[in-house]
Nucleic acid binder design. Structure first.
Lengths: 194, 194
DNA sequence: ACCTGAACACCGTTCAAGT
DNA sequence: ACCTGAACACCGTTCAAGT
C-alpha cells in the first residue's frame, strides 16, 4: 500500500526558491534542495522532471504569485501597481528573477499577467491591434528595469531609480491617453474610470 | 628560461565565447574551454582568475566589440544604429547576452557605450540632468528587448518585433525632440545635424 | 507509488611539482 | 613564468532495488 508522499511538486519548488534566495542560483543544486527537504536528490525527479523544469517551475511560481490589482481600479493605477509588484518580486528573489526574461511567455502564469495588462490597455482606449505591441514594450521595460536594479547593474541610488520609473510611467501613460481610441460600445463607461 | 605562453586572456575569452555559442552557458565549463585550447583546465586560472571573472570578461568583450556609429551622423541615426547593433549582438550570442543585464555597468566597455548614448542625447538637446535618466531607460529597454527576443520569450514573429522596436524608437525620439533644450553655445550647430 | 544506494560522467578549484 | 597531475568536494542523472 502506498505510504503518504514525503514531498510533492509544490514543496520542492518552495524549497528551491528558498535555496536560491539563500545561496544564489549558483548554489541551487538538486542535492541542496533535497537536503532542505530531508530527502535524497533522486527523490526530486519524480516531482519536477529535471533541473531545467525545476527552474521553469520557479519562474512560473513568481508569475502566478504576482499580486494583480483590483480590476475595478482605474487603468493607470492598475499599471503602476503591476510595475511596483514586479519590482518587489525582483527585490525579493533577485537570483531567480532574471530568468523571467529568458523563458517563453506561454505559460498560464505569463498569460495571467499579460491579460491583466491587455485589459488595462483596452480600458485606456488603446487600439486593439496595438495592445499586444504596447504590452511587449511595457513588460520588457519593467522586467529589464527590475532585473537590472535587483542585480545592481545601475550605479544610481534607489531614489533616482524611483524617479526613473515614475518618469517612464508618466511618459507611457500620457502617450496612451492620447492614442487613437478604438470606436465601439462600452468605451465611454470604461473611460469614466479615469 | 620562460617558454612562450600557449594561451593568454584574450584567447581564453575567445574560446569561451565559442564554447558558449556552441553549447550554451550550461555547457560553458572551464574544462570545455581548456579542451578547445588544447590545454588543461588548471592552465586557465592564471589568465582569467576564476569562472566568474571569465563570465565578466565575456560580457565586457561584447560591450567592447559593439560597433559604435560615426559621431558625425545625426543623433537619431546614432541611437537607432546602436539599438540595432545590440540586437545583432544578442542574436549572435544569445546565451551570453542576458548576462549584460546582470553585471554592474561600471566597466570601461559599459562606459564606452553609455557615453556614446549620452552624447547623442546631448546632441538631441536633452537637459543635462535628464541625460543619465534617459540613458538608463533606453539601455534597459534595448537590453531587455534584445535579450527577450534572443531567448525566444516573445511569441510574435520577427516582423512584428521589428515594428515594436521602430514604434518604441519613434516614440522615444519624438519625445526627445520635444524635450526642454538646455541653453548654451554650440547648440544650434548640433541641431543642424537633424 | 515513492524513495534510496550505487554508479557514471561530469564540475570548479587548490597546490605542489615539473620545465 | 607557465602548465600539469593529483586530489578534493562537489554536480545532474540513470537504474535497479527496496518498502
Amino acid at each position: 500500500m502506498p505510504r503518504p508522499a514525503q514531498i510533492d511538486r509544490d514543496s520542492v519548488l518552495a524549497a528551491a526558491l528558498a535555496v536560491a534566495d539563500a545561496g544564489g542560483v549558483a548554489g541551487l543544486s538538486m542535492r541542496a534542495v533535497a537536503e532542505r527537504l530531508g530527502v535524497t536528490a533522486m527523490a526530486l525527479y519524480r516531482h519536477v522532471g529535471d533541473k531545467q523544469q525545476l527552474l521553469d517551475g520557479l519562474v512560473e511560481r513568481l508569475l502566478l504569485e504576482l499580486p494583480l490589482p483590483d480590476p475595478a481600479l482605474p487603468w493607470r493605477q492598475r499599471l503602476t501597481a503591476m510595475g511596483a509588484a514586479m519590482r518587489q518580486t525582483a527585490q525579493a528573489h533577485p537570483q531567480v528573477f532574471p530568468l523571467l526574461l529568458q523563458r517563453p511567455a506561454v505559460t498560464p502564469g505569463a498569460r495571467r499577467v499579460r491579460e491583466a495588462v491587455y485589459q488595462a490597455l483596452r480600458d485606456a482606449g488603446a487600439a486593439e491591434e496595438l495592445v499586444p505591441r504596447i504590452e511587449r514594450v511595457l513588460s520588457t521595460f519593467v522586467l529589464g528595469f527590475a532585473a537590472s536594479e535587483a542585480a545592481g547593474r545601475f550605479t544610481a541610488g534607489k531614489q533616482e531609480l524611483d524617479l526613473d520609473l515614475a518618469w517612464f510611467g508618466e511618459w507611457v501613460l500620457n502617450s496612451l491617453a492620447s492614442v487613437d481610441r478604438a470606436p465601439g460600445p462600452g468605451q465611454a463607461a470604461e473611460d469614466m474610470n479615469e
